[in-house]
Design a protein around this nucleic acid. Structure first.
Lengths: 189, 189
DNA sequence: ATATTTAACTAACACTTGTTAGTTTGCTTG
DNA sequence: CAAGCAAACTAACAAGTGTTAGTTAAATAT
């Protein structure tokens, strides 16, 4: 019924604070103050601080998994798959830069859900690696060290949450094009 | 003399724990336990938890500043300056992967030293940007968006602390070469 | 109008936090 | 041997932590 539930507001507020100071440094009283209520009132909507973190991270991780699955099953060249991966990162990150900070920096504070998260991440990296290997195999990509390629690209894509908020004048498509160009062609003349 | 080395041991142990869980989630009792002593005993050597973080981060930030200054004043092409920057990151990160995690993830928990840190970082990024702009100006680099180039490279270089420990079989020179190649030429055929 | 639900509140809890004070132990040096 | 000292210890603290219990006030549904 309601456009944004109270619980979603809390999670959003928490994610914003988590981005600024990290999960461990943010107290329930911080979150409550940011919403103009008392800490105990939060518990009418959420079950624990842990649960807030879990919700933020797991939903994002599953978005990435789903996105990668779609790309995998699409019937396009390796180069276009790679471009779609870049677009996927930009798209998810643009919609939730706060949450992406938690995904990147606070995943180790997941408890019961940690093994599940690690599995999703590992699968995602494997799919990414497969795209690169296929592209090398069919001569679309240069025959460089796959692990270095993967590391370099993932590092950049994972850092987008820091950079996108500073450049919100740039639209997603432009960003996707210029980032693709630089990741694929480098900076060389 | 001995006190200095004991202090360094504490800082090293702390940095290792900070990398695993982040500054805020690590307690003085965690650090003490990892050293086989009691928390109160740490205070014979260090003055506060804050001070440990400050020491880790500021010394690394100053290493980067010094390294960039040397590169700036060296009389080589823009391309070679860029390669030296890459080597600088690999070199500093290899020697202290734990500390680099704090630099990247816990700088916001600096207190009095935060403005100083931010100044060093801002200056560093400006010098990096200058190298790229000069390279574009004299046609050594492609005329792409400088900010995207800078962001992409810095993201990769700042993530080295995660990656280097997993690949310690690879030596620094090899890594420097293959990373330089991919950052400069991309992955295209 | 009455009953139910929503969402806030106060008060308190058991535990953990960084840190201080004062003391003890064992090595090194005059 | 005595003195000094580095480096550990125990005990404690005041503040802050996530969370629970029980209550209240207003909005909504019957």
């Amino acid at each position: 019924m309601k456009e944004v539930s109270r619980k979603e507001e809390i999670i959003k507020t928490a994610a914003k604070l988590f981005k600024e100071k990290g999960y461990s440094a943010v107290t329930m009283r911080d979150i409550a103050t940011a919403m103009g209520i008392k800490a105990a009132s939060l518990y009418n909507h959420i079950t624990s601080k842990q649960d807030i973190l879990k919700t933020i991270i797991i939903s994002l991780a599953e978005e990435f998994t789903q996105g990668m699955e779609n790309i995998k099953s699409s019937n396009v060249s390796s180069l276009n798959k790679l471009k779609e991966v870049i677009t996927l990162h930009i798209s998810i990150t643009s919609q939730n830069t706060y949450g992406m900070a938690s995904l990147n920096n606070d995943w180790m504070h997941l408890e019961e859900q940690l093994p599940y998260y690690l599995e999703l991440r590992s699968n995602y990296e494997n799919e990414f690696r497969t795209i690169l290997n296929e592209g090398i195999g069919n001569k679309e990509f240069a025959n460089s060290d796959v692990e270095v390629m993967l590391f370099s690209m993932l590092s950049t894509l994972r850092s987008l949450y820091i950079w996108i908020p500073k450049k919100d004048d740039l639209n997603s498509e432009e960003l996707s094009n210029s980032l693709s160009h630089i990741l694929i062609n480098g900076i060389n003349k």
